[in-house]
Design a binder for these strands. Structure first.
Lengths: 179, 179
DNA sequence: CGAATATTTCTGTCTTTACAGAAATATAGA
DNA sequence: TCTATATTTCTGTAAAGACAGAAATATTCG
């Protein structure tokens, strides 16, 4: 990591730690951090050198980032090597990440909760009835969150930012809006 | 898990898997799932029996859940054993989880990003300037998210639900609200 | 086609995390 | 205080994940 200024190193290391806390491989997160702050696409070898990790690790991690849809391959003139760049707009970045997590985790959970609720069906056992109701409340919640995400995802970046920024005013206006 | 109806078993197992994808220990997530759907507080031994995990594992996991603030100890009359119950309201549950993640992860990241931005200070290297700007845009984003969370957290459950539910209408009203 | 270079896949090792069982400690009533 | 019971901490093992280096494969240019 010798070539990077200290502040960049600190950021990349912290981002790696953050990743692990959210179920993302440390190296994957570090590579993404590096690409995010880079002012040009990097090839795999450069990433190895900067982060001091094995070539194979970089290869697999880059594939993972491409699967997430937040890193793309680009080619530079007169250079046959793949170069990689991250989504640069931070709002777009998190929108894509959120979309992917929804697809991978929220949607399957919704499906599973629906299955469980159906399985529960009619039961006379009071404990089971209670469990079924808890599952249904969880399901409602996930449906709500899922719908909200879909609505926000359709907004252009600027509107989305404003929607977030207006959070408190919006809350106060709920009554009026509902009429 | 013999005593539990199949739908409850399926839910608990799925919840455990979900946990691992979000950086939460499988057993911790399973125990929470069990407590969430239970219609009464359970003691540690019951949790062992139901999930088939070691007593020590249950002990540590329960402590973890208490640290998160989503499980509380209660005592029943004429029973000296600790009994455990989860927050039952699903919105409250996720509110508490979000608050804890903010405290543990978002706030430290904000602090770190500010440090990095300061460290970056004045630099004449164009690549470093670019990196610094990327860090600052990330910082703005996290500040926005953090503020939004604080606003939502202060809303009573009902208003928060409505705010989420009204997402699309709110978006359309942003222009009007801003005047 | 063949050589050089780039990339991916495979294999084994190392590290970390999860976890069971035992031991130690604490607590409450007799 | 002593005994029974509940709880936590400790220790070793097992499983999972991360990762390096080597091998295999693919690509491009001469």
């Amino acid at each position: 990591m010798k070539d990077l200024p200290p502040f960049a190193q600190h950021f990349i290391l912290h981002w790696g730690e953050m990743g692990t806390k959210w179920g993302i491989n440390r190296t994957v997160a570090q590579i993404h951090a590096l690409l995010f702050i880079s002012d040009r696409p990097l090839h795999a070898e450069e990433i190895c050198d900067q982060l001091g990790v094995a070539r194979s690790n970089v290869s697999n991690s880059l594939k993972e980032l491409q699967n997430w849809g937040i890193v793309k391959v680009v080619h530079l003139p007169a250079d046959r090597r793949d170069h990689f760049e991250s989504i640069q707009d931070v709002y777009e970045l998190f929108r894509v990440i959120a979309a992917e997590r929804k697809k991978r985790e929220i949607d399957p959970t919704l499906a599973r909760l629906r299955d469980c609720a159906n399985e529960a069906g009619t039961t006379d056992n009071p404990a089971d009835t209670h469990a079924k109701e808890k599952l249904e409340s969880l399901l409602s919640f996930f449906e709500l969150v899922s719908d909200f995400y879909t609505k926000m995802d359709r907004l252009p970046t600027k509107s989305a930012i404003q929607a977030i920024r207006m959070g408190d005013k919006i809350a106060k206006s709920i009554g009026a809006l509902m009429k």
